[in-house]
Design a protein around this nucleic acid. Structure first.
Lengths: 196, 196
DNA sequence: TATAAAAACGATCATACGTTCGTATTTAAG
DNA sequence: CTTAAATACGAACGTATGATCGTTTTTATA
């Protein structure tokens, strides 16, 4: 893929991000070389710096972008739903669907927190906490309404998230189970563990 | 840490493994330099090769060692327990305890499969499958005995493993919750999702 | 205490690293 | 059509990479 001077910066940045997701996922952030990244995008190494500040900034950009989109999406998804049970069902379906389609981002978002500078890491951890709180609040609301019976809301939040996220990384879209069935099974598993 | 020629190879190899776990966990396998590893152990880079074949062999050794010990331990743990419910409880307690104490190994064992050569990766994946089968068989036995009611045994196996393993990576031993409580909560969560 | 084996040293190989910079080219706005 | 801004080039910086090898030092055995 060759590229000419002056060509659209928007497109080039998008290509850099896409190749970055691939390469970080494949080699880890520290081991991803900007030379390989540039080659995949069709640039000379130095030209990357017309689009990114530093390698570190690229990593932050990739993870931050993921988290912000995730948060905006869940809020959109839950908007207008009041009943805790329905909200929980919506959360499960959304989380599974969203994460299945973004395995690279999910992997990087958890495995490469180590490579973020402290200030950047704090920002990401705060966003993650905000997302976790969406589920926490649903469980809490259901518990208050005597709809759910939960021993420890915080631990249950983490347990449900671990289950849903973990499964996404294994799930093979071309395998035995279709997406709807996957959602159904998990909805039932979670509800059994949570319903009164 | 300084080291003298002729000193015990067993100790040196153990130190290499320990430092290797740390550095792979911290930087990722590809980005872990043998120079840094050697420095941490107190060796010149070339001296590592008195103990390891290649960098790749070290990675395989680290992961393989973990998986073999894991398998031997679960078999020992389950030995003599016949009742599926008791076996499930034993599995949960064991898995949580074992994984909490080996966060580095667990992390590396999942995130660095990508860095294993195909032949090595196949061996590890086979061992992992064997471990997963231990839980699968417990669930199956419980289902046959009409003790458990499980919609999809394979998916439930993965879901339970994802939940238990995921939580281990977050769990802070110095935090609000002690280990016994963590096990109790998770045992209840799993049983609710599985019991008839 | 003589000696073989084990382990460490330290130099070396060609190659790759992230980033900077001066220059050239292309695009888009006026 | 002119021109400023955006983008790309390509060389260069000092440093680090995994692995090899001949040599030296230390250990343990007999």
């Amino acid at each position: 893929m060759s590229r000419t001077a002056g060509s659209s910066g928007k497109k080039t940045l998008a290509a850099i991000r896409e190749a970055g997701l691939d390469l970080v996922h494949e080699h880890g952030f520290e081991a991803m070389s900007l030379r390989r990244l540039a080659a995949r995008v069709g640039l000379q190494p130095g030209s990357l710096y017309n689009h990114i500040e530093t390698k570190q900034d690229l990593l932050f950009d990739l993870i931050h972008n993921h988290m912000v989109t995730l948060l905006a999406s869940i809020d959109e998804e839950l908007e207008g739903i009041a009943d805790p049970l329905e909200r929980l069902q919506a959360f499960i379906a959304f989380h599974l669907t969203y994460h299945i389609e973004r395995k690279r981002e999910v992997f990087i978002g958890s495995s490469e927190l180590r490579s973020l500078e402290p200030k950047n890491r704090r920002k990401i951890v705060a966003l993650r906490k905000t997302y976790e709180d969406r589920l926490y609040e649903i469980l809490e609301q259901g518990a208050v309404n005597k709809l759910f019976k939960i021993e420890d809301i915080r631990v249950s939040t983490y347990a449900i998230l671990a289950m849903l996220t973990g499964i996404c990384t294994w799930y093979d879209a071309k395998g035995r189970i279709d997406r709807k069935t996957l959602i159904d099974i998990h909805t039932r598993l979670v509800l059994q563990g949570v319903l009164k």
